[in-house]
Design a protein around this nucleic acid. Structure first.
Lengths: 233, 233
DNA sequence: AATCGTCAAGAGCAGTGCTCTCGTTTTTTC
DNA sequence: GAAAAAACGAGAGCACTGCTCTTGACGATT
């Protein structure tokens, strides 16, 4: 096994990367629905059928883009978490939230591919799942570490998590080890709240409604953080 | 002006309705992307070009479906609110949340049209905005009435709404009259949290993650209600 | 050097949104 | 009631899509 097998495999890898790069660029300008294999081929000076040597179908190209997207978002989120003081859990939560929002606004179509409505006729294969867990793992880590450190003093809200949910809680505990049921569901609420806002913002639901979106977002995720019991440093 | 002007206008109205009905059915089975004017025409025994006498473009048909969708969801939400005891604000919030979720799960593709990622190349025209306000008006009414009745005792959370957001708050006060800034943003957070969950559920993000989705949802919106200060009756 | 797998090219299929024209039918106008 | 005007369905056609199949050339392996 030489450094890079044959010359053929090297040029193949290069072309594959070039295809995904062009596809990503098209995605950014046209959106997921406007992604056209023929257009990609045209831009590469290839004939359309040649693309199928590299991606057997449009869906396979989509899958590659989705995995890349999850990894890009995951990397940004991990980075934001690592750049924050480890003991400042509220700060980490805030940084991570902003990282998600910033990335989503910078790559709206890629974000849409990940968290928007599913592309019609496209069924996400297994391979996308692992990449998808990268960002939620960061949230879980922050929550679990904060709880471990005794830094979580959640406000007294009305409903504790009912016992019927304990099975799901046990499942989610893989991501937030050691955290009690009630906090797990608060974390889930905070998490869905974060993406709910970003969805609304990326999908244009705040048009003509909210001007200072960054300010509103920060207010919202601060509130959600407080709900979890995170106190600003 | 006779009861229904000319016979032609009557058959025109009927055909228009038949088109939207068939389109809605196609939407339910194929999704927004699979909506095909030609398929609609085929099913009506018409030739494809004839459709354009009724809807000048695919986007116009989409607009009609979107407006119908907002009205259907709005009606369901209004109904859920009216069927609850007016003084039980927490109950009204819960009922309305479930109404949104139930409708979304029953009509996933229509919901996607309203709250999912925008259809590529489609720009929502003015006409959709009015219909879109129907459900948020209900949320605003509940919040404002609850505040008026002194039924809102929000928990002490870390951050009050900063003054920089007062302009947006004033704007949102059209929907929640008389409500102070801080509560307005809590309401906004609760609202985005609700749709964040429903989005995740409809878009399949909870697959293999949460089993008791209705239970988790209820837990989440109860928590969000408590964040607003709604106490269960 | 011969073989065998990989590759780009091209034609072709079935489908799409949309436009234009052409008779026909219905409504409006005189 | 007849003539002009408007609305309508049908059909052909354009440019585009994803995808399949065949053909011929190139390059790596034996």
């Amino acid at each position: 096994m030489t450094a890079s097998r044959t010359a053929r495999e090297r040029v193949r890898a290069e072309l594959t990367k070039e295809i995904t790069d062009i596809a990503r660029r098209q995605l950014a300008t046209e959106g997921a629905g406007g992604l056209s294999l023929r257009a990609v081929a045209r831009e590469m000076g290839m004939v359309s059928s040649a693309i199928y040597r590299y991606f057997p179908s449009r869906d396979d190209l989509l899958t590659a883009l989705i995995i890349d997207g999850y990894n890009a978002l995951g990397a940004v989120v991990e980075r934001a978490d690592e750049d924050s003081p480890p003991g400042d859990f509220a700060g980490r939560w805030l940084a991570v939230c902003h990282a998600v929002r910033d990335w989503a606004l910078a790559h709206p179509h890629e974000y849409t591919l990940l968290y928007g409505s599913p592309v019609p006729g496209y069924q996400a294969p297994e391979e996308t799942i692992a990449a998808r867990l990268r960002d939620v793992a960061v949230f879980g880590r922050i929550t679990a570490q904060a709880y471990d450190a005794g830094a979580l003093t959640p406000p007294d809200l009305a409903p504790p998590a009912p016992a019927a949910l304990s099975a799901d809680a046990a499942n989610l505990r893989q991501i937030m080890p050691g955290v009690p049921d009630d906090l797990i569901f608060r974390g889930l609420t905070a998490w869905t709240g974060l993406y709910g806002w970003v969805n609304f913002e990326v999908f244009g639901q705040f048009e003509n409604t909210i001007d200072d979106r960054r300010g509103g977002f920060e207010q919202s995720v601060r509130t959600l953080g407080a709900l979890l019991g995170l106190k600003p440093a």
